[in-house]
Each structure stands twice: as C-alpha cells, then as structure tokens.
Design a protein around this nucleic acid. Sequence first.
DNA 1: CGGGATCCTGGGCGATACTG
DNA 2: CAGTATCGCCCAGGATCCCG
Lengths: 131, 131
Amino acid sequence: MEPNAFREHRPSMCRAREILDRVGDKWSLQVIAMLGEGTKRFTELKREIDGISQRMLTVTLRGLERDGIVSRTVFPVMPPRVDYALTPLGATLLDAASALVGWAEAHLDEIDAARADYDTRTAELDALRSS
Amino acid sequence: MEPNAFREHRPSMCRAREILDRVGDKWSLQVIAMLGEGTKRFTELKREIDGISQRMLTVTLRGLERDGIVSRTVFPVMPPRVDYALTPLGATLLDAASALVGWAEAHLDEIDAARADYDTRTAELDALRSS
DNA sequence: CGGGATCCTGGGCGATACTG
DNA sequence: CAGTATCGCCCAGGATCCCG
C-alpha cells in the first residue's frame, strides 16, 4: 500500500478542499496553464482562453493574485498595460495540477468506454422496467 | 523546462476540464478519499463524510460509477446492502489527486500569508481612496 | 438500508454598459 | 487597454418526503 496523503489525518481534507475550490472553478486552471507559457497581458489571456468573459478573467486573476499564485505588474502608461505571470508558488501548483491533467489524458478512453457501457446498461434496465 | 502536460496541444485542456469537473465538485474527491481506505457501505460513507446529504452522496456515487471510478455491488437481501469500492482506475485517480492534496498541505501557510498580505494592502489602498 | 422524486434557494457566471 | 458596476439567469446542491 503506497503512501496516501488523504489517510494521514482527516483535518487535512477540509483544508485541501479550499485549494480544490480555488483550482477547481471554471477558469483558474486554464489561466494558470496559459501563464505557464510565460508572462502575458490581460487581453492576450482573454483572447487565448476561449469563452471567458472579461469579468471572469478579472475575478479569476484577482483570486489567484490574492493567493500568491499569480503576480500582477502595472505599468503606469497610456494606454494601460498590465502583465501577469506565475509566481514560483504558482509554478509548483502548475506542476502538481499537471499530474491530474496527465491522468485525465491517459485515461480518457477508459472513462468514455465506462460511460458508454454504463449508459447502455441503464438504458436496457429502463426498457425492461417499462415493459 | 520540465515537461508540461498543458503545453502539448490545446485540445487536451478542454478534455482535462471534464476531469476536473468530475473531481472538482464538492464531494467526489472526499468520496474517493474515503473509499481509498477500503470498501464501504452507503450509510458508512454518509456517516464519515461530514455534511453530505444522502441525495448528493447518491448523485456523486452514480457519477463516479458511470465513469468507472467506483464499483457498486448490490446484495439482494433485506434490508438492502450495497458496497462501494474504488476500481483499479479509481485507485490511480486517487494517486494523481494526492499530488494536489500534497501540494495544498505543503503550501497552505504560504497561501494564508499571501492572502493576509493582499488583504491588508488592498485595505490600505481603499483607505487612501476614501480620503 | 439505500435510495428516488420534488421543491427551493444561493451564488457562480454571463451580458451589457460605463470609466481612467 | 484593462478594468468596474449592475442586472439577471441558471443550476448545483440542501431539505424534505416517500418507497421497496
């Protein structure tokens, strides 16, 4: 049995949920992923992250900045210019999250198959029940 | 520069979001964590996962079962008995997720400090603005 | 015991308009 | 360009009741 962070002590889970709430929302991970490519400006992020509204980009970046995951650099020029980048802490988070993304890519086929399997099985049961 | 699953090709991210939607919801990860300790019954899970409603436990377990992460075994007896356990696939997910939980535990202090820092800084700015 | 079915609310999120 | 402010929708998830 390999070491398992979950088992050590229960209270860690509730704190861990805070982090997953941070990373598990709709946009944070994608923002972190984009910044993993290097420093980017606001509009650049908005252009590259498909479907995000400027409001949610702002909100997400603020949250990540507050947690010390993203750094925000304002240049006092006209028109305004703001650079965003991962902090060292943010970079370590990207690495940790990459493990999950790697898992996802490695097992997507299995999951799709499991879903199809489950759906057909339940469909058969429903058919039986209505007969 | 270490390998980064995010950079390889963009389409992987959208699929990756599916997985984070699965694991990033309010309860899935905790259910997986509990089942990491071994096979458990419905009521057992409900008792050990603090705050979960039976509805959400059912919904969560169904979703995980559909994705092939959790197995469900029904014993046709009275009163009913149903056992839940991680599948091999689920066990690998638990390992991958543990990386994130480990990161969370390792950096909680940094994050708390960053938040406190951010909050006091913005509080000072607000004070200046209202003067 | 292990669920379904139904109802209801909070807040996450999008759309739009305005600003330095 | 990089936001802020406001409004409103939608649905995840909680509460409750019932059932085999």
